[in-house]
Amino acid sequence: MLDISPAEWTAILLSLRVAIIATLVATPFGIALAWLLARRDFWGKSVLDAVVHLPLVLPPVVTGYLLLLTFGRRGLVGSFLADHLGIVFAFRWTGAALACGVMSFPLLVRPMRLSIEAIDRKLEQAAETLGAAPFKVFFTVTLPLALPGVLAGMVLGFAKAIGEFGATITFVSNIPGETQTISSAIYSLIQTPDGDAAAGRLVIVSIVLALGALISAEWFARRATARLHGN
């Protein structure tokens, strides 16, 4: 079938690692934010909502540059993390994961928020009358009922993360084996003479991954509906 070279495998595995880590780390924040936006009214809510969606509309190169300014070696947060916790993002795969996490965050949060909004608050009230404290209501009623939406958000976020290009290459460059993901590998290959075949193989891998993610997101969404109807 596809004759994938070791160098291409490196890019594919790195992409998977970057996207999986980005999704797993973003998920708890995503759930918390989705709940906040769906269930609470507070000052500055629309601003927060806009900021979350910003990476969706901003040119990716701008997001990448802002990440570089903030999380780079000399950046405010970057220098603090490097000096005190030993966490370095600049030109590392962790930086690629950060860029992918930020870029995919709006897509990850949206299905989570919609599924929490779709839950009848009356069920949460019923749980309260049965003696459940607010955090227990969340973990025994809200989260289980929102679970298909949470998974759909993770799948969508993952799909976006694995395809991210602009912010990643701006922030952490295009270093084979460290920050060269499928997207940046394709970018390099199509600028190289004779790179077409290799680029083509990676393009097929991208399409398969993206399609797989979309189909599973759809499946989770259907499960969500069935679950809310108690079948």
Binding site: L123, A127, E128
Partner: peptide
């Protein structure tokens, strides 16, 4: 708060947990 009142409440629309 409701959850500390030790009451039972039966609503018109049952409100059973669907999951």
């Amino acid at each position: 708060p409701t959850w500390r009142r030790r009451i039972g409440y039966v609503f018109q629309d049952a409100r059973l947990f669907p999951h």
